[in-house]
Design a protein around this nucleic acid. Structure first.
Lengths: 232, 232
DNA sequence: CGCGGCTTTGATGTTCATCAAGTAAAGTGG
DNA sequence: CCACTTTACTTGATGAACATCAAAGCCGCG
């Protein structure tokens, strides 16, 4: 399944700039010793609703999704999360440390597991850390909430355009990229059916706004895509 | 407009159990001296997008809404917030302390204003406070996110049923209550048009699931409403 | 090789937004 | 306090947007 390696190369790890910027050296080394790094293959589930969650699990490399599973089996993808994203902060200390949704891996990924007991102690003992933590929490919450508000005000074309732009601008930082998710998962993330995701992508292709080659997307007319995203 | 009174009757205030449970007496008195209590009339705007936000503003009595304003003038109500609700925590320390959405008052309300500088100091100096703060933040975020995920999976009847049940179970704690919002605002909160909110309410009335008398709603067949909410 | 899941397109039907028009209620100024 | 204006509410008719259903090709995997 997933390989565990205890290793302490955290000094260069970017996460340090994320929420661990203000740790004392001893505190940081402590985190580093107690953390576990695990490698997950595409498609693997990290945790599921109902499961105890006693680690802060953040993404070091790869891509993951957090999703709700509905009673009829349909999924809703809450967010697609890139390395060093703060979303994991929202998953801990919640609901008596039992997961309320699922997390799985979209691309082969390396995850870091930090016992939340350590995080709790840091919050109690290091005010600067606590403050950084709070700032990140507030920002990631507001970003997620805004995602939903934004979607609610868009038609199907607007939603697909918005999604493509998000991948281009915040995940891959280029106009040509491989879709990390299936058409079905796109649908689950932006609230439409798989068929209509496909149809809309085909429309964009016919209108020469994008090129499609299987999972590969090339954005040709970014301006038009932006307009579609804004209007819709 | 709004009347300001500096008063220090906080010792009995329920807010103490919310996030201020673990303050030392001196800390609490400090908060109490520096807070301002303001009275707002129904319809008044507390802050708007773009405005500096240097206070934690929580609701002592009444009812408020937080809402986004779209480019075409349409609103989206993010949440309707009851006294001592933790949602205000999400509004501070964010976006360089500039509001990213609006807040206004649905019923005559008393709001408490605490300088966020005080909150910041507490987070730095009192680990227990910081921890309580974080717990509340995480819970309120997840609750808000779940609201949107839930809505996405419901049809119009399901949404209206869900909204009525929420008012009944979490705001008024009874089956007869006055709607605190217009039909238009209901629409803005659960993502549909005003006409269809009215139509759906009328349907429920004809089906004898609820009684309607202007703003007054009586839930007659709660079981059916729950089923509609779950299915839809 | 064959099965199942993913993708694609077309045809069909339902749900919902929009438009229109009228009534009721609430605020406004003389 | 009353005429006036505006805003909220209501219902019906229409059309557009979208989901659903169906069928077929594609691809990866055991």
């Amino acid at each position: 399944m997933s390989e565990t390696k205890q290793q302490c190369n955290c000094k260069e790890c970017i996460i340090r700039n994320l929420i661990f910027a203000h740790l004392k050296t001893t505190e940081f080394e402590n985190i580093c010793q107690q953390k576990a790094e695990k490698y997950y293959k595409k498609g693997q589930i990290v945790f599921e609703k109902g499961q105890p969650l006693d680690h802060l699990i953040y993404l070091k490399s790869g891509l993951v999704k957090y999703y709700h599973q509905n009673h009829d089996g349909k999924n809703s993808i809450i967010t697609i999360s890139v390395p060093y994203d703060a979303f994991p902060l929202l998953t801990i200390f919640h609901n008596n440390q039992v997961a309320t949704y699922n997390m799985s891996v979209l691309e082969d990924s390396t995850l870091c597991f930090i016992p939340i007991e350590l995080i709790r102690k840091l919050i109690f003992n290091n005010g600067e850390f606590a403050f950084d933590f709070i700032i990140k929490l507030i920002e990631t919450s507001n970003k997620t909430i805004e995602h939903f508000v934004t979607l609610n005000n868009k038609n199907l074309r607007g939603r697909v355009a918005y999604f493509l732009l998000k991948l281009s601008d915040y995940v891959y930082f280029r106009d040509v990229f491989e879709l990390p998710v299936s058409r079905k998962e796109i649908a689950e993330h932006i609230g439409m059916t798989t068929e209509n995701v496909i149809r809309t992508l085909s429309e964009f292709r016919k209108e020469k706004i994008i090129k499609i080659n299987g999972k590969e997307i090339e954005i040709i007319e970014k301006e038009r895509l932006i307009k579609i995203s804004q209007y819709g």
